[in-house]
Every structure is written in structure tokens, then in C-alpha cells.
């Protein structure tokens, strides 16, 4: 049964020219296999939501997409992940550049213990994207504006970022990611540490960012996936069970497990 649905999945890539793809991706931590033969396409300038019960491998998969798992000891990855058709695990790919092209926002807001300005300026500075202070100022301003934070912090750019509220910190982290002009932004449960009002703001922001960036978001909340995403992928026990248009997944799931999950029979 599972084998059949699995092969059906592989055939699914109905997407014409995906921004990113994963092919037969397997990952293990030592002897523990966490991902089994994942095949998934990410559509450009759309929000793709990864859902599934905790421990299902969705975050692990997300971290494979910009090679964040490289920093963990004892991880082995097999298979292929591509960005614009090029394998990102290719030896010739520079991981530093790759991560600039594929930005990431984490579960807990993690502003650096620096000023608000320096947080946003960090990426452009290390990547040498600017030639002058003015340019940097502009990038910081626009990034903050994009993240919908500029109005709130305009007058205290030089105060420490850790003084912001949780929601503001998370939007700052998004501004920080945006500042290096990434093509893809990966978000790992970006609202799980936020209150409902801050969550609404971040969701709104994600929706706006969609016009310029390809976004992949891992979320715990199916409502959130339904609100912000165009495509949804359901993970279960390290396998990608089903992927499709968000509307279709939530109204007419093909797989029993997906149905079970979204109707709340397990999770």
C-alpha cells in the first residue's frame, strides 16, 4: 500500500519549472534514519507549507534545503537537492553563498546580541554586498520596511535587538534574512514562540513576501498552513506522504494518513 502511494508521489511533480527540488533524499543521524526517499518540488514565488506530526522529519527536511545539517556531526545525506537545477550538495557549491541565496528563519527568534541595525546589516556586511555606508543604510531600511518593522524601530535602530518583543524579534530575523536578497526563504515554525497578534502580523508578512520570494514554511498549525500557503506537503514518520495544492490537501486528501492527520485523529 505504502509502496504504491510512494511511487505515485514520485510521479506527481506536476510543476513545470520548480525553484528547488528534492530527489530520493535520505538522511540519517548515525544509525537513526530520519528521512526516507523524499521527492518534493518547490514552486517559485509561492508559499509551500510542510506539515505533519512532531518528529515526522519536516524540520529535518527544511534544514537539508540550505545544508544546515552540515553543522551537525554524524549526519549522512543521500539523494539530491537542487536549486535552479543545480545540486546544492555538489562539492563545487559554496555553502556560504548557498545559505545567502536560501535564507532561513528559525523557530525561536534569535536576534544577535547587537543593535537592531547591526543585526540587519550583518548579512550584507559579511557577504560584501555594499560599498558604502549609505548603501548599507538603505538596505537596512528597506529590509526593515519589508519585514513591516521599520515604523516600530525607526527611532531606536541603535538600541539592542534583544530589547524588542518576541514578535518584533521574529520580524527582525526575517528582515535580517531578507537583507542579503535571498531567492528562497526557509521558515522553521516561525510563529511557534509568538502570541496570536504577533503571529497574525508575521503571517501577513509572509503573504506579502510571496510576491518576491519563494518561501518554504514548516508549521505545526494546520490553520496556519491553510492561511498562508499555496502548496502543502504532509510528512509522516520521515516520509513525504502527500503533496498538492493547499486547498486540495485540506478538502480532498488522497491519502488516508493525511486525512487522519488533518481531521485530528492523530497529530
Amino acid at each position: 500500500m505504502a509502496a504504491v502511494s510512494q511511487s505515485a508521489m514520485t510521479a506527481e511533480p506536476s510543476v513545470a519549472s520548480p525553484k528547488m527540488t528534492a530527489r530520493d533524499l535520505n538522511l540519517s543521524y548515525g544509525d537513526n534514519q530520519a528521512l526516507f526517499d523524499v521527492n518534493l518540488d518547490i514552486v517559485e514565488r509561492q508559499v509551500t507549507a510542510l506539515i505533519g506530526p512532531s518528529g515526522c522529519g519536516k524540520s529535518t527536511f527544511l534544514r537539508c534545503m540550505n545544508r544546515m545539517n552540515d553543522t551537525i556531526d554524524g549526519v549522512t545525506i543521500k539523494g539530491e537537492v537542487t536549486l535552479d537545477g543545480r545540486d546544492i550538495y555538489d562539492k563545487r557549491i559554496d555553502v556560504v553563498q548557498l545559505r545567502a541565496r536560501i535564507g532561513m528563519v528559525f523557530q525561536k527568534p534569535n536576534p544577535f546580541p547587537k543593535t537592531i541595525y547591526d543585526n540587519v546589516a550583518y548579512g550584507p556586511r559579511i557577504h560584501g554586498l555594499v560599498n558604502s555606508r549609505d548603501e548599507l543604510d538603505q538596505i537596512v531600511m528597506t529590509s526593515l520596511e519589508r519585514a513591516g518593522l521599520l515604523k516600530e524601530v525607526k527611532d531606536r535602530l541603535q538600541s539592542p535587538a534583544t530589547g524588542l518583543s518576541g514578535g518584533q524579534q521574529q520580524r527582525l530575523c526575517i528582515a535580517r534574512a531578507v537583507a542579503v536578497s535571498p531567492e528562497v526563504i526557509l521558515m522553521d515554525e516561525p510563529c511557534s514562540a509568538l502570541d496570536p497578534i504577533a503571529t497574525a502580523k508575521v503571517e501577513e508578512l509572509i503573504d506579502e513576501l510571496r510576491s518576491n520570494y519563494t518561501i518554504v514554511i514548516v508549521t505545526h498549525s494546520m490553520q496556519q498552513a491553510a492561511r498562508v500557503s499555496q502548496r502543502t506537503a504532509f510528512f509522516h514518520l520521515g516520509k513525504l506522504v502527500e503533496v498538492g495544492e493547499t486547498d486540495q490537501i485540506f478538502t480532498n486528501p488522497k491519502d488516508e494518513r493525511t486525512k487522519g492527520y488533518i481531521t485530528g485523529r492523530f497529530g
Partner: peptide
């Protein structure tokens, strides 16, 4: 999480150590 934040932006190890 701070290290992740820095690596996620494409910083090298030494940049992460020195700046974060």
C-alpha cells in the same frame, strides 16, 4: 540558535565566532 542564525545567513565559522 544564535549560531544557527548566523550560519543560516551564510556566515563562515570564524565570522560566526568573531561577530556573534
Amino acid at each position: 540558535s544564535l549560531r544557527d542564525g548566523s550560519y543560516g545567513l551564510g556566515a563562515t565559522k570564524s565570522e560566526t565566532i568573531r561577530h556573534v
